[in-house]
Every structure is written in C-alpha cells, then in structure tokens.
Nucleic acid binder design. Structure first.
Lengths: 211, 211
DNA sequence: GTCTATAGTCGGATAGAC
DNA sequence: GTCTATCCGACTATAGAC
C-alpha cells in the first residue's frame, strides 16, 4: 500500500476525483488515505502543497502509461483512435477529472496554478510531439500552428470532460462530431497534389483578404 | 441596485467569479451583495439553490446580449469573428468563468448539474442555430454532425477559459490555432465544385474504410 | 423582510506525548 | 513519524425579535 507520503498523494487524487476541489480538505484526504489528519501537515505543510504534489504525481503516472502509445502513432487517424481510448480510459482512471478540478481551483488560488499548468503541460507535450511528427509536410501544418493545436486539444478535452459530467449524451455527440471533423481534415491531407495546390491557393487568398 | 433577491443573485455571480465554487459560501455571497447572511436562506432556502438560480439568471442575461449578434452572422468567417469578441467580452463579464466553476462543482454535487447543463445549453442553442443556418449545403454539414459541433464548441470554450487561467500565453496560441483551423475549413467551403467533389469522394472513401 | 444570536459541524493548523 | 488533543475561525441553517 506504500508509505504514508504515497498514500496521502493517492488519497488526494481520489478525493479530488470524488469530492472535487471544494471537498478536498486535509481531513477528507487523510480519511481516504487511511492515515491521521495531522500527517498531511507533517508531510506537506499545507493542503495546497499536498494537492499540487498529488497532481504532479498523478499526471506523471498517467502520461507515462500513454507515452509508448503516443510514440507508436504514425498518422492523424491513429492519433484519433488513441484519443478515443485515452478519453475512455482516463474517464475511468480519473486524471482528467483531477486536472479539471485543479484547473477550477487554480483560477482563484494562484498557489495551485503553476502545478496545474505543469500537469496539463505534460499532456500537451505528448500531443504536440505526435502532431509535429505526424503533420509535418501536410497542408494542416502549413496553415495551422501545431503547438497551439496541441494546447487547444488538451484544453478541449478538459472542457468536454466537465461537459460530460452534466450532459452525457451531449458530450457524446460533441466527441463524435470532433472525430468527424478530424476525419475531414485527415482526408484533406490524403488528397492528391492538384487538390492540395488548390486548397493552398484558396487558403492564401482567404488569409490575406481576412483580418 | 435592485431588490435583495436580485442583489443576492448578482452577489452570487460575482463571488463565483472571484472566489470560485469552493469559496461561494452564503456568507461570502451575502457580503458581496451587501446584505445580511440569513437572507440567503430566507430567499433561496439553500446555498445550492441560490447558485443555480444565479447561473440561470446570469446566463440568460449574457446570452440575450449576444442574441442579435448571433442572428446577424451569415458565414463561418463572421461566426469566427463573433467568437473572438465573445471570448474577449465574456472574459471581462465573467459568465464563462461562472459556468466553468459551476461545471466543476456539478461533477460531484448532482444538485447543481441540471441548472449548469441548462446554462451551458443556452449557449449551445445559439451556436447550434447559427451553425445550422450557415453550414447547410456545405461539405462540413455533409460530414459533420452540426449539433454535436455546437456542443463541442461550447465545451471547448469552457476548457480554454480554464486553461487561460493557468497559462495565458498557451491559451492565446490555442485560440489562434483554432482560428486558423476554422479558416482552413471555411476555405474548403469556398472551393469550386471540382475540388468539392474530390473532397467528398475522398471523405466517403475514408469514412467507409475506417472504423 | 430584515436583523441578531446562536447551535452545531467542519475546516486548517499546531503543541506535545509517545 | 505518528498520534491525541486542542485552538479558533468559517460554515449552514434556524429561532426569534423587530
């Protein structure tokens, strides 16, 4: 079951998952960890410090689980498939929920913000690396900032996770539509050089006209 | 300044904005509203009931502000522009922040969920109506569930709002990349019939091959 | 409708025994 | 390192005066 420190970290993650940031008190975490309440302060000083340490701990664990699978992706379609499993599995494991709760808490409590940014950043780094690898040379990479897209993807995952908590059917439809959209974009990349040139020309014209 | 009931509703919104769901206590709201703490319970019964009423109240107000501007949109590019202003203005007014906090709270407290779903639903309804109007007859509408896309858009906005709270630069990049992506999709819709047919054929093939 | 006062619970954090 | 005991502030909610 691990030493006290680890049990507290895991208790914090579980508490964030089941009680949210509003219910993540030292007493609640200690109860979930099965340890004495005073040990929270002995090991971590403050509740905030425990929560931020727990987020780092949990994110590192979960990202590690996926690192190999991210590395194995060779196309946008495969990334799409991985995204689908990741959503399903993380919904169970709950790291996304933890991230969402910490994000909500970080808006007002600046002490949580750096660790939360780091936790989300681990996912962003993985997605960005894959996108760079998979999209280089495609029209998508030509006209869209790939690093920004990775950040948007991670943020959207969090938003959809929260949405799923209040409207499961709506969230399902949202996910499906995004897959269709990504499929459409993937199809663009598959197109022959003629169509591709046309798309490029159109985009250049639109981009120079707009804004 | 309005009657006590209204002041409490606005105090609740302000408290959610500045203190988050974790700090939205009867005392904090009453202080923000400038009224006695006991009046929360006299007028709304419980804190949860006050928060849900406030979300409905605030969302209705903010959506109303944008209704005409949504109605005036005639193209995907115009919708993009509106989305940009909406993000900037709502960041000030704070309805998105309120929504995000209520979503975070709704994950664990089921009593908040229906009102939160309704508050988000108001935005979804507006976006969906515009998308249906603007996209009908385009390749996008042909291959992507527009209602789902409206839900994904609203959820992504919430996620990006939360992300912006911990990494402003990253969020800016994310927004920019989404605009580029939407511009790319818009360019698709502008293309001539030849290219359009090609895209359709590619998509059909890809869709029947995949999954 | 609005106020004061208060019951009862839970919270962060610390002191000090073991 | 771990425990008990405790301080003290903040919380929800209610009772009752005005």
């Amino acid at each position: 079951m691990g030493d006290t420190r680890t049990r507290l970290l895991e208790g914090a993650l579980q508490t964030l998952r089941t009680q949210g940031i509003a219910g993540a008190s030292a007493r609640a975490v200690a109860a979930a960890a099965g340890v004495n309440q005073a040990l929270v302060f002995y090991h971590f000083g403050t509740v905030d410090d425990l929560l931020t340490a727990a987020l780092r701990y949990g994110s590192e664990q979960r990202v590690t689980v996926y690192r190999e699978r991210f590395a194995a992706v060779t196309s946008l379609r495969e990334l799409l498939d991985l995204g689908r499993s990741l959503h399903a599995e993380e919904r169970e494991a709950g790291n996304l929920a933890v991230l969402a709760q910490m994000l909500a808490g970080s808006q007002m409590d600046g002490r949580l913000a750096p660790a939360t940014a780091a936790g989300l950043g681990m996912w962003v780094a993985e997605v960005e690396e894959v996108l760079q690898r998979v999209l280089t040379g495609t029209p998508l990479a030509e006209f869209v900032d790939v690093a920004g897209l990775a950040r948007a993807t991670a943020a959207a995952f969090v938003g959809l996770e929260l949405y799923e908590g209040v409207d499961e059917d709506g969230a399902k439809r949202a996910f499906d539509s995004l897959e269709q959209l990504a499929g459409l974009v993937a199809a663009l990349d598959d197109m022959g050089p003629l169509v591709r040139r046309t798309v490029r020309a159109r985009l250049r014209k639109a981009n120079s006209t707009e804004r």
